[in-house]
Write a protein that binds this DNA or RNA. Structure first.
Lengths: 343, 343
DNA sequence: TGTTAGCACTCAAAGGTGTCGAGTGCTATT
DNA sequence: AATAGCACTCGACACCTTTGAGTGCTAACA
């Protein structure tokens, strides 16, 4: 994968990639020679381009069009060519303002962040909330809504709230529910949600609690309450990708939108990004999002006060302005981490 | 508006509208004569069509294409021509299954409903949750998250949950928060959220409470908690409208998608539908959604156990299969009302 | 009087042809 | 090694013709 290239070849490749990113049109040899104010003639550039094509870094859509970069070229570009732009003062201001503006709830902040990413990058912004299950338990509470219907509210240290309606076998009066809550709150103190669930399951088998009416009921109910599946995903700016010329045809677009309606796909895709630190970049087929669609993904992790990990990033066409998107994603992730760590 | 038409003209108009709905292509006189197995020749149909055009019910995109229905024609069609299909057993089954499948929480149900509508209609499904503010207060609760940070949780009779992070001026310990909760719960019992807010504001001016430390603090905090703005909107199946030939071009699509990112527009649009009972239909420019887009809206209200009103419906092209969409929306609204009233 | 057949007319869509020009690969030259 | 020159390729575009669906009108007919 690691290609050896002369300095000149690299320069030319860089010029082609950047030109193509800017124009979305195949770039020809003379364009490179001219625009890049090189001392080289177009003929020379042609020779180099022929080389690059042989190495699988460029392709031509047809005989007499210019060349366009392959995924491999983008990969090489982001790995060793791209000159990252600084995040401008104005952009920083926008990011910070957005953080402040958002209602203080976790999901408000994340939604607003997603929107910010979309605005700054002009692509789609995406934020995956830190997994509720790995967050630390804070509080559980039962509220009677009606006959044999109670609402369980589960709060984590992040301030994330899950609520679930539970139908019980027998009716419970409010005082009973309060006592159940107290018992469970004590029991789960300091555990993560996942651990809390395990603890509940363990206690249910425990002989002592088995015969305590209140406890066994509390456990039965809370088992449902602490079973949380699926994390929140915030996607904003879907309309923006319609600006990109490569997505002007309906079939292609549809593929992408359908991918986004099944949030499961995205989660699966992004769980990979959680493991590594710093900005991660997935180009075209590396995203395994939709093989024909030609989308790329720039992501980074963020952490919360309770040390859970979330993910944020930008999805756009493979032909994406990496030089500005990468720093934006990086900076935003840092700011969100800081904001959420203050708590 | 109420046009007088002979039985024959009506039949022909109906045939044209239905043909156009089915094919999205201008329909010509011979097509009507043939497909509709009429005893009339195409020449006669032509005469009638010329009449209909004069009345503003048809237009031709150009001289020698067929005719297409105007908005006025659709209006007339849904008002007095359309033969509503029965909701098929299979569709009923799907609707009911979806209701059951959804997690029992209110927002889960509504989201799932939106998806169901989308699937059955093949257009976009939309559901607006009953306004939280007009729902009856059930429970309020404060949880300490950190120094001077508390989470307020507000539950309505519907089982809808709102949570809000509040930064307080001084730190409150958990017991204090519990006492505050008790006080407020008692105070707000039986009121709607809106009334509860008014009550809080009134109490804040009350001399008696003003000098009670606990109460005045509780009121100050709860004021923020009971201020809820914006209702939930669930839109599903956005990708489906890409199937419609009239939306194959990007500019048009973008307009629609942008409209949907600002959920405020939808809310405003739909608040109108809340007032009247039964299925409401808005055609083309009647939606005021986006003047050029040519979208229609079929909606109906649903009610919950606490007598709050929500809205559900289908958004699709003006050229929409009204005969099946209308019954589907109607039936779904009834089922959801029943499901939510059981509670 | 309402219906129909016939006919001339219109016009978008589809297909064919020719030109243009951007871009290439190759080769000879510096 | 770099460049200039040149023949070649092929999509884009403009222009044309053909085709056919559909219309409006009129005259004939029941």
């Amino acid at each position: 994968m690691n290609v050896e290239l002369s300095a000149r070849s690299r320069q030319i490749l860089e010029a082609i990639v950047e030109d193509y990113i800017a124009t979305a049109e195949p770039v020809g040899s003379s364009a490179v020679a001219r625009r890049h104010a090189m001392t080289l003639s177009s003929a020379t550039v042609r020779n180099v381009m022929a080389n690059l094509e042989e190495m699988g870094l460029l392709t031509s859509p047809h005989t007499s069009a210019g060349r366009i970069p392959t995924e491999k070229a983008y990969r090489f570009y982001v790995d060793s060519l791209v000159a990252l732009r600084q995040v401008s003062r104005d952009e920083k201001r926008q990011i910070i303002n957005h953080c402040r503006k958002a209602g203080a709830g976790l999901s408000d902040i994340l939604k607003e962040t997603s929107r910010t990413l979309s605005q700054l990058s002009n692509y789609m912004g995406i934020v995956v909330a830190p997994s509720f299950n790995s967050d630390v338990f804070r509080h559980i509470e039962f509220i009677r809504l009606g006959h044999r219907k109670i609402l369980a509210i589960l709060v984590s240290s992040n301030g994330a709230v899950q609520n679930r309606l539970i139908e019980t076998e027998e009716d419970h009066d409010p005082e009973e529910l309060v006592r159940m809550g107290n018992y469970l709150n004590e029991m789960m103190q300091g555990l993560t949600i996942t651990q809390a669930r395990e603890r509940v399951l363990a206690e249910m088998k425990n002989e002592k609690t088995k015969y305590d009416h209140l406890m066994s009921r509390a456990l039965r109910i809370s088992e449902q309450a602490v079973t949380v599946d699926g994390d929140d995903v915030f996607v904003e700016g879907q309309a923006r990708i319609l600006d990109q010329p490569e997505f002007s045809d309906a079939a292609r677009m549809k593929e992408i939108y359908e991918a986004f309606e099944k949030k499961g796909i995205i989660l699966q895709l992004l769980s990979r990004c959680m493991s590594a630190d710093g900005v991660q970049i997935y180009i075209g087929s590396e995203t395994s999002l939709s093989r024909s669609a030609g989308v790329s993904l720039v992501t980074s992790r963020f952490v919360t006060s309770s040390n859970t990990v979330g993910m944020l990033g930008v999805i756009g066409p493979t032909r994406m302005g990496y030089s500005s998107v990468i720093p934006i994603v990086d900076y935003t992730a840092r700011m969100i981490s800081r904001l959420l760590s203050e708590a």
